[in-house]
Amino acid sequence: MIIDDTIYGYAVARVKAMETHLLDQGQFERMINSSTTEEALKVLSETGYSAAVAELDDVHNFENILADELSYIFNTVLKISPIPELIGMLALRYDIHNLKVLFKAKFLGVKSDLLIPVGSMDLSKLENAVSEDNFLLLPEKLRRAANVINEDFMINRDPQIIDLILDRVLYDQLIDAAREHNAPFLEGMFVRQIDLTNLKTLIRVKRMGLSRDFLARVLLPNGTLAVDRLTAMIEEPLESLISMLAISDYADLVGEGVREWSEKGSASTLEKLSDDYITTYLKEGKWVPFGVEPLVGYLWAKEIEIKNIRIVLVGKINRLPAESIRERIRDAYI
């Protein structure tokens, strides 16, 4: 009788050891309180990022460090995972992100440098595909979505459609993959991300003054919040959305985040609370001794850490006050 789940023993223990190198609250506090970008980088150079920081020639290129780190961590976890497919499906998020960036760059004519070198597809392949309108090398579902985007943009000239179409492909595939591999914890994360995306879409569509039909078309299926309940909200005031969700898990998030968005026009609080919401969910699986949960949790924790470093460094470069940086910092997983 060999108990199957113990195949995760090695990977989970290794990830637990890697977790100890995540930046802690104190290190972020010091970065936030530093008076210059250089000082903030100095804090970073005392951590696992030291080698990369030492090679950094210009502060403005810090994105390279973050991209390298993300790619290194993702590949490490992928390599040690006993069932690589479960981690591999998360790579799709980066493919979709890169496609979004490339399409926007193409349609809006701006050169974007926010490509993430993680993902199941080679970046240069993706770049060529988008710039030459030749999607034959993409997997079938992505190829179809890319063609739809191309056609739609010719007619509507609306770059928002890029996000909406690609998000749909992404979450359709993620949910399918999670069900196929019987991974309820991952599915739970995707369902929550779908809910959060739908809430953001609802508010965005509402603010743009678009129709109910349009909203019904772009909301993602498979969430816990029923699509028809959400579409009904488009004609209602924001207050009724808040009261509709008052007894759901999203009460705090909507109460605080949505209110701020509608009052100040800034989605940053809602974005932060959404990330924290997923972090809280993933923390439930943090101490599973044999399973994919701590692996997914660690990858998320690393993504949040990278996001936080970006927030601090961008804030420092733009000389934002410490307080406004601090309120955007995401909660830590550890």
């Binding site: 108990i3 113990t6 023993g9 090695y10 223990a13 290794r14 050891a17 890697m18 100890t20 040690i80």
Partner: peptide, 18 residues
């Protein structure tokens, strides 16, 4: 043997980092 094997796998994961 099985018990020691299980602990050994986890231990290797930890030792590879620390």
């Amino acid at each position: 043997a099985i018990g020691i094997g299980i602990v050994g796998q986890s231990a290797c994961g930890l030792i590879s980092e620390d």
